[in-house]
Design a binder for these strands. Structure first.
Lengths: 342, 342
DNA sequence: TTGAAAGCGCTAACAC
DNA sequence: GTGTTAGCGCTTTCAA
């Protein structure tokens, strides 16, 4: 391994000078700088990150903590952070929290030990008090997909309510009156916010949402299937269903189709997220696009700025809006159409 | 920040003793060890990773380089490595190579600077000579999804030929005689290996594979769609198509269905990988399962062992086999069935 | 503009 | 068993 000393010796200067050259510090004579640069090139010198981090207490590394990397959604999140890292000459340090409070905290601590002071946290299982204290400790910590009022300027999140409102309005515009909801249970309140949005719009249109038409299930394919089956078993009336996310929506479509129903002619289905699978299912899924990769990139740049002490205007928050991706899973109902599925 | 000195001072011992306690070194008296442990606990001391890495030249960090994290396949790969990291108390350092030779190399170098000496590389764009040199430099470097004969014991890869043979045989067993292939172009020779496997089996059954029935396209949904359309435009005869991977298979299914063909009654379609989308599409896709997450975990543990100098028996290689996931995209043809689609 | 030197937090001989 | 001490490779005063 070639060290700064080697370069200094060969170039006939002190290590301090080499360090200055490496950092593009202005205080070096032109001839000297050129010579050092040449030697660096020849020797293939690359500064040791650990030594640098040890003395400067910063490591040009951005950390990200998510529940489970193998899920597409989190893969996209990580990819967004990676882009930001790449653009800023940072490296990416990853930790899965495996959906546990303890490892969530442990992950952050261990990131800190690596002098990683820009951190993106997708936290679902820690309470606000814990998070508040953490944020106090780590200036470069930003939260993605979670809103904490006291830390508004360090939260990058999505307006779930408006997204849910949007897609519900869309369904109503398409002539749907009897709408069912496949919801989920989560530590964070995304499902609740989305449900809230749906209910608001329904109320505004004087449309009912009987509790029998709301099913809670796990947020994956199977959960969607089960929820749809329950809906049918209960004999509920509905011409459209809003699912918590794409996974559940596709699961529901599967169950409906397996039961002999046509999508969208007999039941329309919409999702949320716009993952890859929404273009894999038949019919392609109409859904609200969750710009998670962009958001993650944004969050990462924010974290980097904050960690470098470039305090953003402390007063603003960072709210993103989902947009409608219209595909083929919603049927346009005519006045003449039969009543909703019974 | 609490340092080892603080602990030493409070516990009334030397830093060396603290270090021994932290590392579970045997050379410490029981009373002393207990006291130190207590102080560590009270002060919340956590050793600084960078300092440790600086002196010990190793960082308990495993690096992984893949082309693009946002793709499900690579997300799963990363998740596998993360599991291994987690199990071994390692952290995960990630780099995207963005499908470029230059950043592939750059990524590795920068991993090295972080004293990261267990590295998993999914390389597609570097030539063997470069890789050989790299491997020489870094004992803990293992290749995933690529086989380099000289480095056999450090390659974790999949038997693509046998996988392709398996699925082709399956199709033939189901009565298919006219099989088309949607292939792809890649730097690594996975597509070629799979094509090879298909051709072998076809030949063994005296079945023809006219060049017109082989289409090359990009390995994603759109590529699959385009390939399927070309196949139809050419007026080729086939009752089944083998796609390079699930993405292309689903794309092809989309195109066939859009053209009014029924899958699988009119055309059977099979894929490779067994990604999530194979259970999202209709009908669900029959495919060869690529155990990438398991393989990545295995590769990571191998890399860790190698980096710690625990030389595995140098002579063996690490070959995995894909398995058939039978779902609903293949039709069983009867002798009485019409001739293949013309 | 440049160099000398102290020290970041930790480990590992080597003493005692 | 436990302490002393010399660095690991780098940055950063402080002097010159």
């Amino acid at each position: 391994m070639v060290t700064i000393k080697d370069v200094a010796r060969v170039a006939g200067v002190s290590t301090a000078t080499v360090s200055r050259v490496v950092h593009d510090g202005g205080q070096v004579g032109d001839a000297c700088r050129a010579r050092v640069k040449k030697v660096i090139e020849e020797l293939g010198y690359r500064p040791n990150t650990n030594a640098r981090a040890l003395v400067s207490k910063t490591s040009d590394t951005i950390g990200v903590v998510t529940p489970k990397l193998s899920m597409t959604f989190f893969g996209c999140l990580a990819a967004g952070v990676e882009n930001a890292a790449h653009n800023n000459g940072y490296k990416l340090l990853m930790s899965n929290s495996h959906y546990e409070t303890k490892s969530e905290l442990e992950a952050i601590r261990s990131l800190q030990e690596h002098s990683c002071n820009a951190i993106i946290l997708h936290s679902e299982y820690s309470d606000e008090k814990t998070l508040l204290k953490l944020a106090d400790d780590i200036p470069g910590l930003v939260f993605i997909n979670r809103f904490i009022p006291e830390l508004a300027h360090r939260c990058v999140w999505l307006d779930n309510v408006s997204g849910a409102r949007h897609i519900t309005r869309y369904l109503i515009d398409k002539g749907h009156r009897d709408i069912a909801v496949i919801s989920s249970v989560y530590q964070n309140n995304d499902p609740q916010s989305r449900l809230e949005g749906i209910q608001q719009v329904l109320r505004e249109h004087d449309l009912a949402l009987p509790s029998g038409r709301i099913i809670e299930s796990t947020a994956n394919l199977r959960g969607g299937e089960e929820a749809a089956r329950q809906l049918m078993d209960r004999g509920e009336t509905f011409s459209a269903v809003v699912a918590y996310n794409d996974l559940m929506a596709v699961g529901a479509m599967n169950a409906f189709q397996d039961a002999g129903l046509r999508v969208p002619e007999d039941v329309s289905v919409v999702g949320f997220d716009d993952l890859y699978i929404s273009r894999a299912c038949r019919p392609h899924l109409t859904t609200m696009s969750y710009p998670i990769e962009d958001m993650a990139l944004y969050a990462a740049e924010l974290a980097i700025k904050l960690s470098e002490g470039q305090a953003d205007s402390q007063s603003r928050t960072h709210l993103f809006y989902p947009t409608l991706k219209e595909r083929a899973s919603v049927y346009t109902r005519q006045a003449s159409d039969d009543d909703a599925l019974a």
